[in-house]
Every structure is written in C-alpha cells, then in structure tokens.
Design a protein around this nucleic acid. Structure first.
Lengths: 335, 335
DNA sequence: TTGTATGCGTTATCAT
DNA sequence: ATGATAACGCATACAA
C-alpha cells in the first residue's frame, strides 16, 4: 500500500494525496475528507525512507552516552526521550563507553544515519585536549550538537549544564562550616564535570582557610567486577585516611564511604559527616539517609530539547551555554 | 557527495561503486582499492534513506519500555543496545508508560518507522485480556516481536524470560525454612511478572503448610510524588501488620520495609528477615545488605538478541519461549 | 569484471 | 484546487 494506491483508489493524483497527508492548505475540504477516509480504511502509512530521501531528514535525534545503565544517564535518557517525543522526534540510542576511538566510530555511524542532531549526555565527551574533541566539532558542521553537563567551545555546539563547581563548593563549605577540618574527597572519574567538582572542593578549602593536601584525595578506579560502592569502601579500607568528613563526587561513592565509616564504629554525622552528589534514590536507601546535591537533571534535559527545537525553527536565539544552579538536599549524614 | 560523484571521480560506474561498498566479490582487487581510496578521501557515506528505500530495511530495532529510567529496564536497554550494535543494528527507544492507549499509539508509530523488529521490555505489555494485546499480535504480522520477561502467545512473538514464579517460590520457601511463619508480601504492580511472583509466594506457603490470608498482602500504589522506597515504608506504617518476614517483589520495596523495620527497633534478621527481588545495586546500599533474587537480566537480553538474529537468518529454529532460572543471592537480611 | 537502466515512494515545482 | 513529473541516492537485474 503506497501513495499510488491511495491515489488510484481516491481518483486524485499522488500530489493531492501527499498534500492531504502533509496538511497542506491548498486542498478542498471535500477532497481532504475523501482521501483521509481511504487512508484510514486501508491503514496506509507513508514510507519513511522515501520521505527521508526527499526531505533528507527523518526527525530523528542521535543520543550518545557512555553507559545508559548508569543511574544518572538513564534518567537523562528518559527525560530526553519524553521531551523529544513530545516534539515528534525519535531518538536512536548509542552507548560508547569511554574509549575515544569507539566514541569517534559511533559518532561517524550515528552521523551516517542522517540524524537531525546529536545529543551528548555526560561530560565524558569533553576530553583532555581540544584535538580529541575535534570529531565532535566536525559532526557539528553537519548538524547541531547538544552537550549535556559539559562545556565544549565550537561552532554549532550548544551546552546545557549545571554549575558543578560551585555546587561542590557550596556543599563542601556547608560541611566544613559544621566544625569539620579533615575532609576526604572521594571521586572516580576525570571527566570535565569531575574536574569541576574537584575544583569546587578546593575553592571551598581556600574559602575556609584549610590547607589543601593531596592526602585528602581518594581516587576510586572503576572495576567492572564490582560496584562503585564496594570500590569506595575498599579504597578507604586500604588507605585508612584520617577524616571527619567525606565529600563524594557521586552518591554511590558516598554510600560506600558510609558503609566503611559505620563498620569502623564511627557515628554519623557526629563523628563524620558524608555527602553525595546527584541526589539519586540511593540517598534514601542509605542509613542514615545521604545528604546530596540535586543537579537538576530534568531541567537540563528539558532545556536542552527546548534549545534544540528553537535551533531548528529559528537559528538566532540559542546561547552557546546555558548554566543552571544546583541545590543542596540536606538529609541525615550531615548536621 | 553521493554515489554518482564517486562514480565520476573514480571513472567506474555507480554499480561498481555500489558493489565495492557492499563488499560484493565480483570486483577486481585493483578497482576495489581505487574506489575505496576515493571514498575515504572524500569522506563519502551512503545515504541510508536511499538504501532503506530500495531494501526496505534500515537495520533498526524498536525498543519499547514503560520507563527507561527504571533500574531494571535501564539495565535491559543497555544490554540490548550492546548486543544489537554488535550485530550492526541501531535501536530506537520508545517509552510508553502504562497506559494502553499510549502503548498502542507508540507501537503504531514505531511500526511506521519500518523497524526490522520490536523488542518489548518488561511484562507490563502482557495485559489482562488477550484483546488488549491484539495490537502486539497485529505488529507481529509485519515483523518479529520479542518479549522480555513475559509470555504472550501469538504467531511471530518470541518470549525470553526468567521463571519468576519458581524464583519467588524458592526465596519465600528459603525464608520460611529459617523458622518464620508470618510473612508479609509487598508488591507494587499487577503486571504478568508480578502475578507470577505472587503465585510463587503462594506456592511456597502451600508447600510449607502455612494458610494464606489476604492480610499477608501489602500493595504499594505508585505515586510519582515520592519514591517506591518511601511508598513501601509508608504503607507499612499505615497498616502496621504483624510479621516476622517481608518478601518484596522488588528491591526498593524491600529497602523501604527494611527502613520501617529498623525504625520499629526490630533486629534484622533476628526479629524479621527481608528479601528483595532483582539483585540491583540497591542491595549493597542497604544496611544490613539485602538478600535478593538475581533474575539474569543480562542473559535474557543476550538470548533475546541472539534469537532475533537467528530469526533474521533462518526462520525455523527459534522457540516461542525461552525460560531461564533465577538465583538467590544471600546477603545479610536473612539467615 | 564492469556498465546501463530501472524501481523504490515521497515531496516539490511547475503547469493548468 | 488539482495534476504531471522531476528529483532524491541507492541497489540490482540484466546486458555486455
């Protein structure tokens, strides 16, 4: 069943049928009804390939992320899907992991699908050097590239993010303000966002007049054979740092620290306070419940799609960067 | 840049260029190299629409789920993406929620994209009546439909699942075998899988000679304004049932029950044992860590894609149902 | 081994 | 308001 069939059955030309399908105004009401009735009756659906071929678009957005099963990313994908579908866009999903070569390859692949735009979720697409990001800038020459949670300066690349640096500054400072002086900062990534957070941590130290020392930093290498939570716990067990508060760059790490602290017989938050980041549902599972940072992911995603739609309709009005402010969610691991 | 350009530049016909692109054997090595070199040099990529138009396929699979941010589903999507991409298939993601009308509408939409198959993630696509599932059977007339974690009897629908009923039977029976006699079964869904689990719970009761009573059941209505964990806790606070063990149909519910039990001053597992379901990373966050059921999601997804590939290449050899067995993961909320 | 010609199903342009 | 027809870019049957 194609447009020719409908044309034959209704007695109108394919042009008219096409006009009806696409809601063109230059069709008489009578004709429209007749054609619509036949389309309905025969359950005809336009062939998207043929349409795509002519229009060179298929109303599809490519979403790239490192790992869609990650809590934060899964949430982002969900919000993006919701917003895009509302605008009648489909999304094709592509998980790349952290390897730059895979990222490049997948970007090429996704571009070859003639997507109308690419959304990069997570700051791990902001690499060490500008050159490593050149494949993104390259893609941006064909279609808009939206970056969620990172900054990349290139034409046609638009960033929507939360100010992680000041968020981490705020929560660290808040913790230190409750009489703490020996922080441990625990983290597991070197992405753009992670660096921002670390910078925020150091900002807070400076602001509170506490001398920074490398000993304060605890890096948790990722290991596919066990969870991040376990990794954090293990790292603490091995290093056994002295601390009266733990600032984590991610909730699961904080949960691991909490587990360690409790095993050591420390009282929380009396002996040690602990903070997470992302305000995921992990926070509620912990005992005591975890203080964390809500980095407004839903807002980010909604804004990102909204910017994209603006971009499609009206090239002018979209800022290269849109930055939101996070919010501290106080629970029971801090005073 | 299209195939005609490459044809002109190389001096070969479009047919030959096409043959090179598609790896046809009937091309001389010399020609192949020459064409490949030009393709590389000019960065030519075949137009997928034109290709799709001719072949009527775009190597794309539609994935439907109720909510891709749900931990279990997000995990499934990740595994599916991984396996599909390995086979050079793209996936377009579509979240439907639980409303049957939305499901139908989205299915229509996804079918209109001419996907090569549809994968339904989660048993919420198995509705009360057969008639409500007719839109799925209808879709299956055009392309294979794979169902993960549910059973639907229809031509061209293939189910891959875990035996939730006996899994729930096993873990309940295990709990009861440690001297418990007053269980509370806590659940939050009426999906196919949920019903199976409930049946398994009752099987275990029968097997242990414990009389079933409706009081044992605690339903937690879903409420977007708060988490499932909180919902479970609240439901227990309101009903205040007497129990010495809690069997939950999902980890978050168990986490809520745990929170409630601890707040009541109950010792775990001495006074009350608690079990979850899904073996998510929530289990490790809890204190004490949650005993749960590993329902082999990765295996399910891998098998599902593998079946699909078999289906594409060789219609014969795929069973309508493929059932795996779950595994109890003992942790610290049970003896 | 290579080339020619045609179909795939739309949309858009230009007539009428 | 409607119709005829040319793109769109590829794969492939058939010819050479």
């Amino acid at each position: 069943m194609n447009i020719y069939d409908i044309s034959k059955i209704t007695g109108f030309s394919t042009a008219t049928v096409s006009r009806v399908i696409n809601g063109s105004s230059n069709v008489s009401e009578k004709t429209r009804e007749k054609v619509l009735a036949v389309i309905e009756e025969y359950g005809y659906t336009p062939n998207v390939f043929a349409r795509g071929l002519g229009l060179n678009t298929m109303k599809t957005i490519g979403i790239m992320c490192t790992d869609s099963s990650d809590r934060y990313i899964a949430q982002a994908v969900y919000y993006l899907e919701e917003n895009l579908r509302e605008q009648n866009y489909d999304l094709i999903l592509c998980c790349t992991g952290h390897d730059i070569h895979v990222k490049q390859k997948q970007m090429k692949l996704i571009m070859s699908k003639r997507v109308d735009a690419v959304i990069l979720v997570g700051s791990s697409y902001v690499e060490e050097t500008e050159e490593m990001c050149s494949y993104i800038a390259e893609a941006a020459r064909s279609v808009p590239v939206m970056l969620i949670n990172g900054i990349l300066n290139a034409p046609n690349v638009f960033c929507t993010l939360c100010d992680d640096r000041s968020a981490m500054h705020d929560i660290t400072r808040y913790t230190l303000s409750t009489g703490r002086s020996r922080p441990v900062y625990i983290y597991n990534s070197h992405s753009y966002s992670s660096k921002q957070k670390l910078a925020g941590f150091r900002d807070a130290l400076d602001a509170c007049g506490i001398a920074y020392s490398d000993d304060m930093l605890l890096y948790v290498p990722s290991d596919p054979s066990h969870s991040l939570l376990y990794g954090a716990k293990k790292a603490l067990e091995e290093r056994r740092p002295v601390f009266d508060c733990v600032i984590a760059s991610e909730d699961l790490l904080a949960a691991g620290a909490l587990k360690y602290a409790k095993a050591q017989g420390m009282r929380i938050p009396e002996d040690v306070s602990i903070t997470g980041f992302n305000d995921s549902d992990i926070c509620e599972c912990c005992d005591p419940e975890l203080t964390s940072v809500d980095n407004k992911l839903e807002t980010l995603c909604t804004q990102c799609v909204s910017s994209l739609m603006t971009l499609f309709s009206d090239r002018s009005a979209v800022p290269a960067q849109t930055v939101f402010t996070a919010e501290i969610k106080k629970r029971d691991t801090t005073f």
